[in-house]
Each structure stands twice: as structure tokens, then as C-alpha cells.
Amino acid sequence: MSALEDLLAAGVRVVGEGLSPGTSGNLSVRDGDRILLSGTGVSLGRMRPEQVAVLDLQGRHLEGAKPSKEWPLHVAFYQRDPGHRAVVHVHSPSTVAVSCLRPWSDHSAVPPLTPYFVMRVGQTPLLPYRPPGDPGLGEDLRDCPWELRAALLSNHGSVLAGAKLDEAVDRAVELEEACRITLLTDGLARRELDADAITALARQWSSPWGTRTTLGTPRR
């Protein structure tokens, strides 16, 4: 399956999973030195090839549709880590709701309530509020001091990366579920995973938790 076919299939999947109401959200996949990104105002479940934009790795528009205004988020993830080959940004209900709350900690807005969140997503910091499409969203993500493969955008939604689109969508589904459980248990005497359990899960599944990244290093 080509990168374009992967992108179109992922659009159908995120809508089917209930992660992308209306024309919200955007997806991208890295294809060599190009980024294929859903166009602006596109319903992801009905996205057609001519509605896909092509950017370079600096975010310059090369061809195709007008890119989503959230393109800085996608470029930032690819610049943070060359291992990221796909990015999903959605406004799914529970992640938006948790993005409107005070974060659980500096390194993760979402508490460690289930092993699956720690294993599949990892720490998910809350980035500062900026208007949709603000280039600063990309700067905040690129320069976030925590190791991450997911983040919440204050009062906005989530952004996640993976080595392929299926992996990034899987993480978006898991993060939505973790946020739903967070909301269901908010204000209750809930039990979080203890530090030893989190450390063991993060080590076994190579998941970021409580770890910082090195800022100022060259990015490819």
C-alpha cells in the first residue's frame, strides 16, 4: 500500500473510531523527504487524493491541496524525531475535555490509571493554549522538554505520532480511552499505578514516562 493509500485509509478509520467529528482533525504521513497531509476543511472519512497536500520537511507547500492550518504540528513532530513517520491530530471528545482541565503533572496531563495508557501512549504533556493554526503550536511541540509521542493542546485536542499511521491511530484511540477514564474517575478516591509498576511498564514497552529530552540538539 502506498503512503497516499495509507493516509486515505487512516482517515476512514479515525472517523469510524469516533475521533474526528465533522471536518475536524488532520493526518499526515512522511514519504521520503515529503509529507503528505490532509487538506484544509476535509472530512477525513471521505478524503480523496486531490484533497491531500504535499509539503517538504520544513513545511513548504510543494503541490496538491491547500494544507491544513495545523501543519506546524506535523512538521514539528517529524523534526523532533526522525523515527516519527506519521502524525494524527484530532478533537476527540474526551481528550478535548481533559485538555480543559488542570494537568495531572508537568510531564503528563493524563494520570497513569491503566497499564495500557503507559504502554501504548506514555506521558502526555499539556502544551499551552494557542489559537488553531498558530505557528507557535509547532514550536511548543518541537521544543517540549519531555520525551513524548503524544501531547494535549490546551482547550483544543490531541496530537500523536508513530512509526506508521496505524500505530499513531492506535495511540489516538488509547489516549481517548485514557481520557474518558480520567473523566469518569475525576473527584473520586481513585488508585493510580504506583511508581514501580509504571517504571516496569515503561521499560518493557520502551514508553516515555518521567523522562526529559535533550533540547538544543541538532534535529534531522
Rank of each mutant, 00 (worst) to 15 (best):
residue 92 S to L: 12
residue 66 K to N: 12
residue 46 R to F: 15
residue 92 S to A: 13
residue 163 A to N: 00
residue 207 S to L: 01
residue 220 R to C: 01
residue 191 R to H: 14
residue 152 L to M: 02
residue 160 L to W: 13
residue 60 R to M: 00
residue 125 P to N: 11
residue 79 Q to T: 00
residue 43 S to L: 03
residue 102 R to S: 11
residue 62 L to W: 12
residue 22 G to Y: 14
residue 80 R to V: 04
residue 178 A to S: 07
residue 201 L to C: 05
residue 136 G to V: 01
residue 78 Y to T: 00
residue 31 D to F: 00
residue 31 D to I: 00
residue 2 S to W: 04
residue 116 Y to K: 11
residue 155 N to R: 13
residue 59 G to Q: 05
residue 168 A to L: 09
residue 100 C to I: 07
residue 118 V to S: 02
residue 29 V to W: 03
residue 128 P to T: 05
residue 74 H to G: 09
residue 215 L to Q: 15
residue 126 L to V: 02
residue 165 L to A: 04
residue 60 R to N: 01
residue 214 T to C: 08
residue 128 P to F: 15
residue 78 Y to R: 03
residue 167 E to M: 04
residue 89 H to Y: 14
residue 101 L to G: 09
residue 92 S to R: 13
residue 137 L to P: 01
residue 9 A to Q: 15
residue 143 D to V: 00
residue 47 M to N: 07
residue 121 V to A: 03
residue 17 E to K: 12
residue 210 G to F: 08
residue 25 G to W: 13
residue 203 R to P: 00
residue 101 L to S: 02
residue 126 L to A: 06
residue 108 S to F: 11
residue 2 S to M: 08
residue 78 Y to W: 04
residue 86 A to D: 10
residue 55 L to I: 02
residue 214 T to H: 15
residue 70 E to M: 08
residue 131 P to S: 10
residue 52 V to F: 15
residue 188 L to Q: 08
residue 190 R to S: 02
residue 203 R to T: 00
residue 154 S to G: 09
residue 65 A to T: 00
residue 95 T to I: 10
residue 181 I to L: 15
residue 62 L to E: 09
residue 97 A to G: 04
residue 36 L to F: 05
residue 146 W to S: 09
residue 80 R to T: 05
residue 22 G to C: 10
residue 59 G to P: 07
residue 10 A to W: 13
residue 133 G to Q: 11
residue 189 A to Y: 15
residue 14 V to F: 06
residue 89 H to W: 13
residue 184 L to V: 07
residue 154 S to H: 10
residue 164 K to R: 06
residue 149 R to D: 11
residue 211 T to A: 14
residue 15 V to L: 14
residue 26 N to P: 05
residue 149 R to S: 08
residue 154 S to W: 11
residue 66 K to D: 09
residue 77 F to A: 05
residue 219 R to E: 13
residue 121 V to G: 05
residue 195 A to R: 09
residue 104 W to Q: 13
residue 210 G to H: 14
residue 86 A to P: 12
residue 24 S to N: 08
residue 192 E to V: 08
residue 180 R to A: 03
residue 54 V to F: 06
residue 25 G to C: 10
residue 202 A to M: 02
residue 86 A to N: 12
residue 43 S to V: 05
residue 75 V to L: 05
residue 47 M to L: 05
residue 69 K to T: 14
residue 209 W to H: 06
residue 160 L to Y: 14
residue 66 K to Y: 14
residue 1 M to T: 03
residue 82 P to Q: 12
residue 5 E to C: 00
residue 33 D to C: 00
residue 25 G to Q: 07
residue 19 L to T: 03
residue 127 L to Q: 04
residue 25 G to S: 04
residue 175 L to N: 08
residue 77 F to P: 01
residue 36 L to D: 04
